[in-house]
Design a protein around this nucleic acid. Structure first.
Lengths: 243, 243
DNA sequence: GGGACTTGTACGGTCCGACCACACCGTATG
DNA sequence: CATACGGTGTGGTCGGACCGTACAAGTCCC
């Protein structure tokens, strides 16, 4: 029941600035679309140097909460935005490369998330998403397709289904998790002994998956996508991942 | 099929630095525990100013890849670490507050993740974790417990189960998602008309959950935790969230 | 008078040099 | 031998300066 004590690490200026801005966000005083004052104004108001402020802004930028543009006019300056995808992707990729998560952890997470994605997509995917998905599947079935192009389309297919599930959070998570193993999958596909046969097998699964989603058979789609991801499991090799 | 063009936004120095360090991580040249050269050495080597380097380091710090300590000796300087939890939590909290994700999205994600957590925990949770979980459940059952203390213990209970599921990634995600709605849950509990009765009901569910996990009845535990989280759904109100 | 060009200005982006607080390490001192 | 003290290297902070960019207004030429 006792929680270990840990050093407080007090008062690094940029963290105080960060805390301060976060609080304004939590309080609803800063919404998406709002503009922050120019750095040269805000710094003295907060009582810190521009460097400290800039470090805090940089953090918010990498979290996907802020974008900054130089110049003048309505688009210039620092603006609050909502773009968590890049940040989450970078975070997971780095930590996966560092070994914070094992390959098995990532694959399990993929299965959990994508089972739910496909099940939800079968319930209420907009038809234009299904059209786009069909196009992607057709693209993957192109004869003589390269490994890299296949991997791109495959990623986009899975992410598209996640997005069409209607849940922005699980969609983001799915995308980030999928991206974090992307280099591994790419390498595995490159080393496949019979690439055309592998591609045919994967395409058949994609076809069936899309068909199940279109017909609203969510439970079967979930089972199949689990099998689909498990199928990759055996072919993947653990180790240091390229970007 | 056509991807929209988007401005390239080239060559912000700190991003180049970030890219460079990331690549060393992806290549396996930087592992957890390694130390970076001092800022004053690294900056000229990379051909950038210390400010630009520091901004990149700050970013790595906030995504939990780096820690920096002043002073001298074996613990000083910038070291590569693996601590994704704080970063992920902050990211989700901020974006939830900004409205990137709706309350329903978060609750669905919680259900997906925690169903899997409880199911996995039922299979192979270490007994010391179960002991700790029992202690937490007992703590929540204390007569006259306050809303805040209850919420703390409840959070720790759910996170503990996620951790004992053996999957570091889903555990981190569960924790982050749970933390992002924590202020909302706190507010909902504070506004409950009959708090003691609510607490008793929640405690009964926790008791059953723990029992199911201990007995290895994962499927039932998963169903119950879904119901448990759904139960909260009705009581939660959407709106700006405090930290 | 209208369009093209030039200037002014407000941004963020970068860099530099300096100082501070801290923690270790070696030496000097009792 | 133990303690006290200053040296040294680390990140943390700060202020100032310059750069490129992009808008805005003023100016010139047709």
């Amino acid at each position: 029941m006792s929680v270990e004590w840990q050093p407080v690490r007090q008062s690094r200026t940029h963290e105080l600035v960060l805390r301060s801005i976060e609080e304004r966000v939590f309080a609803g005083e800063l919404k998406a679309g709002d503009r922050l004052p120019p750095e040269r104004e805000l710094a003295p108001v907060l009582g810190v140097s521009r460097s400290a402020l800039r470090e805090a802004l940089r953090v918010l930028e990498t979290i996907g909460v802020l974008v900054a543009q130089p110049g003048r006019g309505p688009d210039a300056g620092a603006r609050i935005v909502r773009n968590p995808d890049d940040a989450l992707g970078r975070l997971l990729r780095l930590h996966f490369a560092l070994g914070s998560y094992s390959l098995q952890d990532v694959l399990e997470a993929r299965i959990i998330l994508e089972r739910s994605s496909f099940a939800a997509a079968a319930c209420h995917a907009p038809s234009e998403d299904l059209d786009e998905a069909e196009e992607l599947v057709r693209g993957m079935a192109a004869p003589g397709i390269g490994v890299s192009a296949f991997n791109d389309l495959d990623t986009r297919f899975h992410v598209l289904i996640a997005r069409s599930s209607g849940n922005a959070l699980t969609s983001t998570l799915t995308s980030a998790v999928r991206e974090s193993v992307r280099p591994l999958i790419l390498r595995a596909l490159e080393e496949a002994e019979d690439w055309p046969a592998t591609a045919r097998a994967l395409n058949a699964e994609h076809d069936t998956l899309l068909m199940l989603v279109c017909e609203g058979r969510g439970a079967e789609a979930a089972d199949l996508v689990e099998q689909h991801i498990h199928g990759l499991h055996g072919t993947l090799v653990d180790g240091p991942a390229g970007p």
